[in-house]
Design a binder for these strands. Structure first.
Lengths: 213, 213, 213, 213
DNA sequence: AATGAATGAGACTTCATTCAT
DNA sequence: AATGAATGAAGTCTCATTCAT
């Protein structure tokens, strides 16, 4: 249907489909789905409006592909090459979490529009079945890891913790984008460490007591 | 100019301005600014389209007033009647935070649309100066309190912590709305307690050690 | 849904719905459904494009209503006030047919666009169920009369005869429209008489033999 | 200019022009001129869109050639190999008419799309001069024959009769296509005989009286 | 010679806003 | 003061035609 599927050796530079997806991501991330006109996207991609419709059946199809593309990128950024570890072993979980947090930070930095777009409220009205399946497939591994990690712990459940942590991360990125905040990698790591205490106070390695005044 | 600002004692029942604001909030929260048609709002408010324009100059003016209205509600919910306390005194800060968290929860429950609307991405393109000022005025007291609380603490700065906490709370509410989560008041309080550790691990009162299996 | 339904006494002159239907009939009759742009119709009706859409949900809905309107007019023109007659009695059938033919002619003269539009090929692709039902309801009485008339006659069946007669009439009107023909009421009546022989040669009253030159 | 007009003996198999004409006829007959997209035609013909434009200057040029092609086919089907006869001689005219009617029927059966396309309303807007001339050239011989046949007859004029007869035939074919009718060759011949009475009641050979039930 | 990707004018439709009632 | 019919600019999408390959 769509004219994607290039033969080997064809230059990627000229892949209109890719160019349009990227332009659409930027536009949707900035102004939202309803706030973005299709010709704007086409124009930003440097193609005619009609051309866009050669690659995507409709605006809705486009936003779904943009969504899936961004979600895929996130999934890759988070999980690609992560070794299977035994979270039960002492100290492993904390390192694992730190790595995840670091990867999230790297993703938000490398693909700010994708991150922003994914965090927009309510894609629901236009997401199709395929997109929704992908959504779940990204969350599932995190949830499973969380379950393993906190199987017998007290305190809030895994879902609540995940929501808190994810939200916390989003909060930092959003605050930064809105100019309330400027944060470097070091500080982001510290923030991650603080969040770790949120997950697993009882698993945290003891810190030396704060020195008095 | 507009027939707003009724004097004291005027019955609120007939206050079209109020009714329109409420209907607009619901619509904007559900479908976003660009996804909402003005006649929809008017119709939901039970008034004619023309009438709406007697109370608000334009769609943009309307959304700005909706924004300010929601932000005011939030401010009231958070700060109204909170006694000035000396956060430096032992244990006061934790209680103060718990109260704030509780109030946030109550607000999100009582005014779900307002909360959702405020958390939508990018009001920026249509917010006017007045709205932006209000934005700051809600954040400022929190920031000051944070500063006082963590003046000499190590770890992430106040702005980062605020972003983390706010984000964490938003994350829980959003996850709940999207159906990933179901949480009651008790659990929300627990989540708040977990978040407190995020702010001030060194200030947290020691908990009894976890009981062995 | 549509704002039709005027109260009693409201001037019909200003009935936009009516005006739009008439303008659409003319346009569709002249250029066909696909050859007519909605703004053309609106403009011909003297209203804005948006206004047309207040009265009709879509171009397809419009053409369906135009179709039904024209079909109704035809039905009224053909059958309204026709007394029930006993077609079996001698000479009645011929008179009845002549009357029908005369009415058809009057309709084609009074409502040339409606006639032309109805005779366009293939409304089928856009006609909805309601329109198709109406279609049948106009044909049915003719078919029944034909059945009664020719119950025991030899020669072509009723359906074939109806198609021949209807086609013959259409042929004359079309030839006239295309300029191949100019025909007055008297000649049209003669043509009807000729067609009567097509139906019922065996029922035709004998004519005096042609006088030799 | 265009690669049309191949010389004698050139294999027709590869004649793209012919293939495109045929595909266009089918498409135009089914969906009309405005309802048919050029790439659809090209695709149905199994050629690229650009290729079509090597053979035809524009959509309008294409439809004109399709029209002329169909009209030629009709002319050939009607007149090719018809011997000159003296219509004035007794019984010849009826036979001649029956033959014409039979040929029409054969044409409508062999080339249903051509027949249907030719009968569509209003080619006028896009027909060029050349096409219009052809139109006349098909009608003229019929008209002349009619004139000769009914030179001194009373009743409707030749043009009216021709319109009636042509219309009657079209009516049968159209009714059949729309599913109102199913007719075989025998019945079509009967219909033709009935139509003959329409032309020339005074010339019709007497039939045996109807047998009583 | 053949192709089909690319294009922008123009199609259908919506919606913020106005204004006569 | 209130209404909702009216509007045209702007949005989504199609298609006749061109042109680089």
């Amino acid at each position: 249907m769509t004219p994607a599927k290039r033969g080997r050796g064809r230059p990627l530079v000229d892949d209109k489909r890719r160019i349009i997806l990227d332009a659409a991501l930027v536009a949707f991330a900035e102004r939202g789905y309803h706030g973005t006109a299709v010709p704007e996207v086409a124009s930003a991609a440097g193609v005619g409006t009609g051309t866009l419709y050669r690659y995507f059946d409709s605006k809705e199809a486009l936003v779904n592909e943009v969504y899936r593309d961004a979600k895929q990128k996130l999934r890759t950024a988070l999980f690609s090459g992560v070794p299977e570890v035994d979270l039960a072993r002492d100290g492993v979980a904390e390192t694992w979490f730190a790595e995840l947090w670091r990867r999230l930070g790297a993703f938000a930095k490398a693909e700010p529009e994708a991150f922003r777009f994914l965090e927009m409220q309510d894609h629901a009205p236009y997401l199709d079945h395929k997109s929704r399946e992908l959504e779940v497939s990204v969350l599932a591994p995190l949830w499973l890891a969380g379950k393993r990690l906190r199987a017998h712990a007290e305190g809030p459940g895994v879902d609540v913790l995940m929501a808190l942590l994810w939200g916390a991360f989003v909060g930092v990125i959003k605050a930064q984008r809105l100019g309330y905040l400027r944060i470097d990698d070091k500080q982001l790591e510290q923030a991650g460490a603080a969040c770790w205490r949120l997950i697993a106070p009882d698993l945290t390695r003891p810190r030396p007591p704060r020195k008095k005044g």
